[in-house]
Design a protein around this nucleic acid. Structure first.
Lengths: 109, 109
DNA sequence: TAAGCTACCTTGTTATACCAGTTTCTAGGC
DNA sequence: GCCTAGAAACTGGTATAACAAGGTAGCTTA
């Protein structure tokens, strides 16, 4: 039981929320997302991101299109679906409620 | 992929944090914790709590003593150890940092 | 054409929450 | 005394998701 593992466990499920948010702001591909997440200190590795994107796609929350790159292999550019927007709204509430609950418990003394 | 499952995943790892906080405030037993968590809308079932308490105990973050009840079977009253207090401080930081990162991503537009 | 980079994907492991039970102990009614 | 009810602690199986450590394929450049 160490802090690094705890961080992983706390982050669980949050990634889905964050990535859906990033995609909701406009078309992006995997490396864009990793860059932004890393910048926000929400470290993610590829092996985590790709399965997650596939889950979101399977659930019809996002869609993608292939775009040829000017330098290198083609990229999958993701965008959010209407269904994804709806789901994101409920995730916003879930997160807000979770923060409230945690604050309620951890600020008591 | 539904909101209820997402809620479970987001809560994952947070429980450890919340329960350590509750125990840090004074001696409590399992039902006390469930009551407080339920009140804060952080629903937990027994089958989740007991293994978690055992993990905390194994990691020497908490200790317990048996106390006989006036009505019913004896209870395990938990209290936090010095090691647990240290760990709780790092968890506070982990949580704070996680909230900041998430806010950074979700508030951008 | 070979090396190197970029982008996407896959497999196996680990950790944790949940569900649906079981066991143990005490109290109270008959 | 015996049985039931309820409280408290615990357990086994399942599902989910992140991670580590790879692999595959396309493109560029020397």
């Amino acid at each position: 039981m160490n802090a690094s593992n705890t961080q992983i466990q706390m982050r669980k499920g949050l990634l889905e929320f964050c990535i859906l948010h990033i995609i909701s702001r406009g078309e992006v591909y995997a490396s864009d997302m990793i860059d932004e997440l890393t910048e926000a200190k929400m470290i993610v590795v590829e092996g985590t991101l790709y399965p997650l994107l596939n889950r979101l796609k399977t659930a019809s929350l996002v869609s993608y299109k292939w775009v040829e790159s000017e330098s290198g292999p083609p990229r999958k550019y993701y965008s959010i679906t209407d269904e994804g927007k709806d789901f994101l709204l409920t995730l916003d509430q879930t997160w807000e409620s979770l923060v409230k609950s945690t604050l309620l418990i951890t600020s008591k003394r």
